[in-house]
C-alpha cells in the first residue's frame, strides 16, 4: 500500500513532458490516469524514481473531428469517450468499449493514451483501435510519427513506443457509409479485464460485405487483427452461416495466453464465439 519514494513533476505541455523524459531517462515514468501504474507501485512491482504527471495537460484531452478523421487526444478519459456523441457517430464500438472498461471511478481517470501505451494484452482499447483502422500518434525529441494500431502492439506489454516518446493522439478515419461496429467482451470475472474482447467494424454495400476489420484482445500476448475473418467475409453476405464459417481458425497463429480463468483451448473457443457475437451485432 506504500509506493517507493520518487520525485513528482507535473508537465505543463507535451513538449515539457518530452523534455522531462529526456532529462530523467529510464528512471522516469509518465503518469497519465495512473490506474495501472499506481497499483503496481503500491505492490512494489514497479519503482520509478521520477513520475512525470501528464494528466493535466489540456492539449492532450479532446475528442474532435479533423477533416475525414476522428482524433482523440491521449488524455481523453474512458468516460470522455463513453459519453462522446462524436465518438458514437464514428463507431458505436468506441463508447461501447469505453463503457466496459473498469468501473465508473476508473473510467473517470483512466485515459485512452495510458491504456494503449501500457498495452495490457487484456485491455479493451487495442482491439477496438485495430478494428477502427486507427493510427497512433507519437511525439519524441526527434519529432512526430504515427503508427497504424495494427502494428503498434508488439507483444506482452510491448509497443512501438520508443524511449522518450509520448503517445499524443489516436486518429480514426471516418468510416464509409453503411459501416456498423460492435465490441463484445468476455470478462475475467475478478478484474473485469477481457479474457477475450472482439471488436468488429463492418461495411455492407448492396447486401454484401465490402470491408470488415476485426480486432481481438485478451486472447494473445498482444492484440491483433483477425485477418482470417477479413479474408473469409469480404464479398460475402452477412449471414450467420457465413460468419460462423469465417470465425473458424480465429487466433490460430496467435501466442495464446492461459491462466486459471481460461485455458488456451477455451480462450481460442471464446475468440470464435466473441468474434461472431461482435460481427452479428455489427450486421444483424
Amino acid at each position: 500500500m506504500v509506493t517507493n519514494k520518487f520525485d513528482y513533476i507535473r508537465a505543463e505541455s507535451v513538449d515539457d513532458a518530452i523534455t522531462l523524459m529526456v532529462k530523467h531517462g529510464m528512471d522516469a515514468k509518465l503518469l497519465a490516469g495512473g490506474h495501472s501504474l499506481i497499483p503496481a507501485m503500491k505492490l512494489r512491482l514497479n519503482a520509478p524514481g521520477v513520475l512525470i504527471d501528464i494528466r493535466k495537460i489540456q492539449e492532450l484531452r479532446y475528442i474532435k473531428k479533423d477533416g475525414n478523421k476522428l482524433v482523440i487526444g491521449a488524455g481523453a478519459t474512458h468516460h470522455d469517450i463513453a459519453t462522446s456523441e462524436l465518438a458514437h457517430q464514428t463507431y458505436s464500438m468506441l463508447p461501447e468499449a469505453a463503457d466496459l472498461i473498469g468501473d465508473q471511478q476508473v473510467r473517470n481517470i483512466g485515459t485512452i493514451g495510458g491504456s494503449l501505451a501500457h498495452a495490457d494484452p487484456a485491455a479493451d482499447w487495442p482491439g477496438v483501435m485495430i478494428a477502427a483502422g486507427a493510427s497512433v500518434h507519437l511525439k519524441g525529441p526527434d519529432g512526430e510519427r504515427s503508427v497504424p494500431a495494427e502494428d503498434f502492439f508488439t507483444g506482452f506489454y510491448m509497443t512501438e513506443l520508443q524511449e522518450n516518446e509520448l503517445l499524443t493522439a489516436i486518429s480514426i478515419p471516418l468510416p464509409p457509409e453503411g459501416t456498423r461496429s460492435a465490441y463484445k467482451k468476455f470478462m475475467q470475472p475478478a478484474s473485469r479485464f477481457a479474457i477475450v474482447g472482439a471488436a468488429a467494424a463492418v461495411t455492407v454495400k448492396g447486401g454484401k460485405i465490402e470491408r470488415v476489420k476485426v480486432g481481438i484482445n485478451g486472447l494473445a500476448d498482444a492484440a491483433f487483427a483477425a485477418g482470417n475473418i477479413e479474408k473469409a467475409l469480404v464479398g460475402k453476405e452477412p449471414t450467420e452461416a457465413n460468419i460462423d464459417a469465417a470465425v473458424e481458425g480465429t487466433g490460430a497463429d496467435a501466442m495464446v495466453m492461459a491462466d486459471h480463468f481460461a485455458s488456451e483451448e477455451y480462450r481460442l473457443h471464446l475468440a470464435k464465439v466473441y468474434a461472431k457475437r461482435a460481427l452479428m451485432a455489427a450486421t444483424q
Binding site: Y8, D103, Q105, N108
Partner: peptide, 21 residues
C-alpha cells in the same frame, strides 16, 4: 471502491491517486 470520493465532481478511487495529483 471503499476509498471512493469526489474529485472535481467525479467519483475516483482515492487509493489510486496521489495527493499531489
Amino acid at each position: 471502491g471503499a476509498c471512493t470520493i469526489l474529485v472535481d465532481g467525479n467519483a475516483v478511487k482515492s487509493c489510486t491517486m496521489l495527493a499531489v495529483q
